[in-house]
Computed example of a mutant assay.
Amino acid sequence: MLASDLAAVVRADVRRFEGFHFGVSAYYGGTTRNRPKPDRVKTCDDANPNVVAPCGYVSAPLFIADAHLSVNRDR
C-alpha cells in the first residue's frame, strides 16, 4: 500500500446574488507516511523496521484553506 495517511477536503460555494459566486474550501491530511523517506530516517534503539519513520520523529500534517470570489458583470 503506497498511501497510508488519509485526508479530507470540504468545499462550499454560494451563488446567492446575481453575478456573484463565492465560497470556501479546506483540506487537511497527514503526509508523514505517504512517501518513503530513506534519506530522513534516523537510527534509534527501539526502531521498528516495518515503518517509514521508525523513531517516530517525522510529523508532517498539512492544512490548506481557500476563500474565493468571482464577479460577473455583463455590460
Rank of each mutant, 00 (worst) to 15 (best):
G29H: 04
A47I: 00
C55H: 08
P54S: 10
A12R: 13
T43C: 03
A7G: 15
G23V: 02
R73L: 12
N72E: 12
L2E: 09
A60E: 13
S59R: 12
F20W: 15
D46G: 03
P36T: 09
I64C: 01
P49S: 04
F17P: 00
S70G: 05
V51A: 04
L6D: 11
D39T: 01
R16A: 13
Y57F: 08
V51P: 04
N34S: 06
A3Y: 11
A53N: 15
V9K: 12
G30T: 06
S4Y: 05
K42S: 12
Y27H: 13
A3G: 10
A7I: 01
G29N: 05
Y27P: 05
C44F: 10
H21G: 04
Y28L: 05
A7D: 15
R75L: 14
C44N: 06
C44R: 05
S4W: 03
N72K: 14
N50P: 01
R75I: 11
C55W: 08
G23Y: 08
P54G: 06
D45R: 11
D39M: 06
F20Q: 06
Y27T: 10
T32E: 14
P54C: 13
V9I: 06
R16P: 00
D74A: 12
A3D: 08
R73P: 00
L62F: 10
L6K: 11
S4N: 12
D66I: 01
R35A: 11
V10H: 12
A26V: 03
G19W: 09
V51D: 03
P61C: 09
A26I: 00
I64F: 04
N72G: 01
A67G: 14
D74G: 03
T32I: 04
G19P: 05
Y27M: 07
A60D: 14
D46P: 00
R40Y: 14
R15Q: 12
N72W: 03
T31E: 15
M1A: 10
P49R: 05
V52G: 06
R73Q: 10
R35E: 11
R75G: 03
G23A: 02
Y28D: 05
K42F: 13
V9M: 10
F22Y: 15
S4F: 01
F20E: 02
N50K: 14
V41F: 07
A67K: 02
N72I: 02
R75M: 03
L62R: 14
V51S: 04
A60G: 02
S70C: 02
G29D: 03
F63Y: 12
V52A: 05
R33A: 09
T43I: 10
G19R: 07
G56I: 04
G19V: 04
